[in-house]
Design a protein around this nucleic acid. Sequence first.
DNA 1: ATGCCTTGTCGCACAAGA
Length: 260
Amino acid sequence: MQIATWNINGVKARLETAIAWLNEARPDVACLQEIKSVDEGFPRTAFEDIGYNVVTHGQKGFNGVAILSLKPVEDIVRGLPGDDTDEHARYIEAVVSSDNTVCRVGCLYLPNGNPVDTPKYPYKLAWMDRLIAHAKSKLPLEEPFVLAGDYNVIPEPRDAARPAEWTEDALFRLDTLEKYRELTALGFTDAVRSFDQSDGVYTFWDYQAGAWQKNNGIRIDHMLLSAQATDKAIGCRIDKHVRSWEKPSDHVPVIVELEI
DNA sequence: ATGCCTTGTCGCACAAGA
């Protein structure tokens, strides 16, 4: 079973590109972030026409997440639990059944948090606290659980081409990294790093200042695997070539393969 | 130091992104 995550930066602006990539990669599950669409406006039939079941959690203009799955999904959770006043659409979860087992998939779009001297940064940290609490609450199930998404976290200096430029940024601030480590310390494995320890592995290149051409990238899209998912993981890759396509998202897909 | 692009919005510029 292949599970992918991809911040597509607008599902309508990216529809042709998204369909092209899905037909090329054919992941069993695709977690999409920044769909920038309400549920009613999501072009679901375009995805259903190529075989995917579609569940969305959208909002107007910004944010918004979706899960596409070749197999039917159940136990859908829309919105990150822990704060009923939070109106940002940044989390959707579903359970995907395979022939003989199940996998829980959480699709998340963690807040950016910049500028750090505004309420946006404490919102990011509080959101991470809720993600930690939610992940913790699922541990007793002892099931394969994949937390996939745009974390807006640069875990280590080697995850940025120019780490010195990020030290005061919400993506790389110490408070951010401490929360991220608190999450992984629950027992989640970074799928990319479990298969590739090399430098220069990125998932995002800014549209500005020729970041792609200069390979000035950062690795902020992650797939965290529960112990039961880690045991089943047999590969992980980043579809970097998608960044060179016409009208690309600034993020590229990350795909993990589980022997499920 | 700032903007550099890109998307969406009841646009006639601006917010948000990272």
